[in-house]
Amino acid sequence: MNVQETEINEAFRAEVREWMHAHLSGRFAPLKHASGLGAEGYDAQLAKEWEQELAKGGWTGIGWSGEHGGRGATLAQQVIFHEEYVSCGGPGRIGHIGETLLAPTLMHYGTPEQKQRFLPGILAGKDYWAQGYSEPGAGSDLAAIRTKARIDPASGEWVIDGQKVWTSWAHESEWIFVLARCDEAVAAASSGGRHGAMVLLLVRLNQPGVEVRPIRQITGTSEFNEVFFDGARTEGSLHLGPVGDGWKVAMYLLGCERGASTLGQQAHFRYELNLILDLARQNGAARNPLLRQRLAKAALGLQTLRSHALRSSDEATSQRAASVSKYAWSNWHRDLGELAMEVLGEEGELLLDDPALRPLQQLWLVSRADTIYAGTNEIQMNLMAERALGMPR
């Protein structure tokens, strides 16, 4: 995409900066540069209030059309917003899953009633969503899910039984979208094989039959959860797309992860890299020629990631460009975590309380999972081979 600054975009960039400096202060100041749920000191309740502050300023759903209450910002302006948001210290967005993943899928597959019911709460920063995809034994191989959903003939409601795992933010969300297998009658009529006879359901979390168990991570915090469904219910109309086409809808939703918001993720990577560079200058690690070479390689790698993200941010770009994105950034970020520990030196082996150093230690701990979640490296390479390069299975 062409990222050349126009007079309109320069004014938009200035508007974002001015608003962020004015509002990310006072009671919201503790959220500055907090990466999100699972990060130490991240206050979920304050983050929800921050979402509502963003909504009041018109900064949620900026890429949505005016029909749905958004700004209708161009792709270039969306990139500007996400990069400037992080550069100004904006915290990880607790409304990200609802706004970036579910909302575009609702706009594409949802009924008018579903859009009217759910989009306003997402836009206002008041309704928070979790993603119910992965299961024990069905992580990267999502087609192996076993959670089942059936219609209760007496009430017309969906009844859900099963388990989801690694469910981000479920303990702080009101709703979850659940990929489940339909009952035997639908399965028999489906011709989609392993990918057939699925349904994507919108389910309220706070109800009998749903149990959310936070998973304690190596960092000592909890971002992920196990979610158990034992006769949980949702309205018969709360499925996205036709019953039996859940796989198709679920894949469309995953495609929304390749939007302009990935540039915000990379802006946070830039912030982390700058922390490492500052420390290397302070403790003398930058005088080590090998470490200096690795620091330069990290900076060049991040610029390459940004160029790739800009190339693949438009839906019209090639499948090949989009396929390598997750593989590329997860490996780069894992290496950045290892570089942080190298620059910390012997101090990195200790439990650090120094607020200037501990984030780098936490970076290393968190980045160990990058090449596993959202599809392991092995799965990503299969996808690149089969979908992008057209190689046989």
Score class of each variant (00 low, 15 high):
Asn2Ile: 11
Gln4Glu: 14
Glu7Pro: 03
Arg17Val: 11
Glu18Trp: 00
Ser25Ala: 15
Ala29Trp: 02
Ala29Ser: 12
Leu31Thr: 05
Leu37His: 01
Gly38Met: 09
Ala44Leu: 08
Leu46Thr: 06
Ala47Thr: 08
Ala47Gly: 02
Ala47Val: 02
Trp50Arg: 06
Glu51Thr: 00
Gly61Gln: 10
Ser65Glu: 11
Gly66Leu: 07
Val79Asn: 05
Phe81Cys: 00
Tyr85Val: 04
Val86Leu: 11
Ser87Arg: 14
Pro91Ser: 04
Gly92Arg: 06
Ile94Gln: 01
Ile97Met: 10
Ile97Lys: 11
Gly98Ala: 13
Ala103Ser: 13
Ala103Trp: 02
Tyr109Ala: 15
Gly125Asp: 03
Gln131Pro: 00
Gly132Thr: 10
Gly137Thr: 02
Gly139Thr: 10
Leu142Asp: 08
Thr147His: 01
Lys148His: 08
Arg150Lys: 13
Asp152Ala: 02
Pro153Ile: 02
Gly162Tyr: 08
Thr167His: 02
Ser168Lys: 06
Phe177Cys: 05
Arg181Leu: 11
Arg181Glu: 05
Cys182Phe: 02
Ala185Gln: 09
Val186Phe: 02
Ala187Gln: 14
Gly192Met: 07
Gly192Gln: 05
Arg194Tyr: 09
Leu201Val: 03
Val203Arg: 11
Val203Ile: 05
Asn206Gln: 15
Val212Ile: 15
Pro214Asn: 08
Ile218Asn: 13
Thr219Trp: 00
Phe224Met: 08
Phe224Ile: 01
Ala232Ile: 07
Arg233Gly: 00
Glu235Val: 13
Glu235His: 14
His239Pro: 05
Leu263Ala: 03
Glu272Phe: 00
Asn274Thr: 10
Asn274Phe: 07
Leu275Asn: 07
Leu277Met: 12
Arg281Tyr: 06
Arg281Asn: 10
Asn288Pro: 01
Pro289Arg: 05
Gln293Cys: 09
Arg294Gly: 03
Leu302Ile: 04
Gln303Glu: 15
His308Phe: 01
Ala309Thr: 08
Gln319Ser: 02
Trp329Glu: 10
Asn331Asp: 06
Trp332Lys: 05
Asp335His: 04
Leu336Glu: 04
Leu336Pro: 12
Leu339Asn: 09
Ala340Pro: 03
Leu352Thr: 01
Ala356Asn: 12
Gln361Tyr: 11
Gln362Trp: 14
Ala369Leu: 13
Ala369Gln: 14
Ala369Gly: 12
Asp370Cys: 12
Thr371Ser: 05
Tyr373Met: 07
Ile379Ala: 08
Asn382Tyr: 12
Glu386Met: 13
Ala388Gly: 09
